[in-house]
């Protein structure tokens, strides 16, 4: 248990170091997302230890290391880990080539979302106030449910 934690943390730091490796600008854009691949691997291989929180922390470290928007990669890493943990039993037994193809396809979606969030981020403050409606819904749902179920019961009589 402790050894697997050790391995997870060590490989994550190594992946982060690979990401931060100074490369010529033309090579930089082709550098694989080492940390993302590491997170995917550990969520397939050690799902009991490397869960969503691990993925979130790894994403946050990447954000900090690359001076990006804080929380962007954290969010996307968490969603990646969620997806691959859910697909684990199907994905884990697939041949290596089809695994790579799935990851390539998934990465396209990942990059699209990252691009979209970065575009929105210039106006993220108003976006956040807009999204606060989700929390209002969270709070309002029990009230609505209670009232409407009351009403439904009365009307059924």
């Amino acid at each position: 248990m402790t050894t697997s934690w050790f391995a997870i943390i060590l490989t994550s730091i190594a992946a982060l170091a690979l990401t931060l490796l100074p490369l010529p600008a033309t090579m930089q854009v082709h550098n694989p997302q080492w940390l993302l691949l590491t997170v995917i691997f550990w969520s397939l291989y050690r799902p009991a230890q490397a869960g969503l929180i691990y993925a979130w922390i790894a994403g946050l470290m990447l954000d900090v290391a690359t001076n990006g928007l804080l929380g962007l990669n954290a969010l996307l890493f968490t969603m990646t880990a969620f997806l691959f943990l859910s697909l684990r039993q199907r994905f884990g037994v697939a041949p290596l080539l089809s695994q790579a193809l799935v990851i390539a396809g998934f990465t396209l979606g990942y990059l699209m979302v990252a691009l979209w969030v970065e575009g929105v981020a210039t106006d993220l403050v108003s976006m956040a106030t807009y999204l606060s409606r989700a929390i209002s819904n969270l709070a309002a749902w029990p009230v609505v449910f209670f009232l409407l179920s009351r009403f439904a019961r009365i009307s059924e009589r």
């Binding site: 928007l69 929380g71 969010l75």
Partner: peptide, 14 residues
Amino acid sequence: LAVISIALMSLDRI
């Protein structure tokens, strides 16, 4: 975690 991330992004932007 998603809500925390979005909150972090907004606070970072502010």
